[in-house]
Design a protein around this nucleic acid. Structure first.
Lengths: 228, 228
DNA sequence: ATATCTGGTGATCGCTCGATAAACTGAGCC
DNA sequence: GGCTCAGTTTATCGAGCGATCACCAGATAT
């Protein structure tokens, strides 16, 4: 598979790579380029990063758009392929611990300049894959969190969380996400200890959710009060 | 090719505007264009939106970059020029009410496709004005909120909030902000009642902050526990 | 060694971009 | 009327873009 470097090292530049290697190199470097420049980044600049000429790109991708799609695939699937979210439902451990662990791992995966910038750029393009990802966060993560919180608070675990409960989870999730944006996109100073930020955010969320559950129990009605 | 009548046909009505009007029309339409296309949007597309020709732009702006700077100025200053944040410190009214009112007004100002997209695009460019804005949010809004919360919880109003307290306020603020991003950038379904979303988020934040204040009082030490 | 396969290059096309210079046009003033 | 000045257009430049094609050269098989 991997071409071994010939011992003789004829010239400064060894040029020929196997097709698979070259292709994935294109995707990797393209991710870096587009993260910095946006998807307007040029194919010539990309080729320069690889030390090859620009037309070579078209040996591996029919068009720039196809390359971009590969970048999407890689970036969007990267933080999910571990299947970390299942940890959230492991009721043998305290909810607080599960949430802390999940968010530490999740943010380890997505809190870096490259991922966040590609995510925001593609979000601004309004592509389907972005909506797919947001729906996935809702279904796989937030719905699970709300269910576990309700269980933890001794409430009936209804099949589907109410819209208001989900919104609450979104605000919590978004608050954590925004920490990454502030740090890696805005490059603003943030509290350096990410784990503590998550811990504090969880304190807020769990305290608030608990209190809400109590007041909902008092009124023996809807779990979250409706506007009025 | 001979489609046009050689006769003097009043060449597509040439609307003459005053310099000031035309200039501000450029900025307005440029904001709309750049919100949709990003700052890569072309000067020709912009001119088409005004019903004029492209070189006219350069009578009013030395370069496209200067036009972009004007767009920044307009967009970044728009939601701030009211000076709404002073309401937060008006202690004659309950804190809860002040926060609710402030965030309803603030989000009314910034939660729209145009503002949010320009904000994110310019944030991705990493310009100074974006850092300035983030610093302003911190100094003018979040610092104030923390101070009022501490006062409300009966804690000493120290001159400067701790980094951890500020971070907490950021998570809260970011959670609300992300509601706008989900709705207007991702165009994902959200809880329609924005006021209730804010109300629920405030419940979380205030309950969490209160509880933290209590535990901090118990330990008579730092207002927020340090990691350990 | 020679043929062949394939990763890689050089030259170039058509198009769009930001920007410039010069010509045109319409409204107010004498 | 005719003059003038400011707003607008026509024509065009040079650079950069994505994409295509003919060709080259290093590795492998015969």
């Amino acid at each position: 598979m991997n071409r071994k470097t010939p011992v003789k090292r004829t010239r400064a530049k060894q040029r020929r790579l196997s097709a698979d290697d070259r292709r994935s190199e294109f995707v990797t470097k393209a991710t870096e380029l587009f993260a910095e420049e946006g998807f307007g980044g040029g194919t010539r600049a990309l080729a320069r990063r690889l030390g090859v000429t620009q037309p070579l790109l078209y040996r591996y991708f029919p068009s720039k758009d196809d390359l971009i799609k590969e970048v999407y695939r890689k970036v969007y699937l990267e933080p999910l392929e571990i299947g970390r979210e299942k940890l959230l439902s492991d009721r043998s451990r305290p909810l607080r611990v599960r949430l802390q662990e999940f968010y530490e791992g999740y943010t380890d995966a997505i809190f870096n300049r490259k991922w966040l910038r590609i995510y925001l750029y593609s979000g601004l393009k309004g592509l389907d894959i972005n909506r797919w990802y947001v729906g996935m966060v809702k279904d796989k993560i937030l719905t699970r969190i709300v269910r576990e919180c309700r269980h933890d608070a001794g409430l009936a675990t209804q099949s589907r969380p109410s819209a208001a409960e989900l919104e609450l989870a979104w605000v919590f999730h978004g608050g954590i996400f925004y920490y990454g944006v502030r740090k890696y996109i805005y490059e603003a100073p943030v509290l350096e200890d990410k784990a503590q930020m998550i811990s504090d955010a969880l304190d807020l969320f769990l305290a608030g959710f608990e209190r809400m559950a109590e007041s909902a129990t008092d009124r023996r009605g809807a779990p979250i009060k409706v506007v009025g």
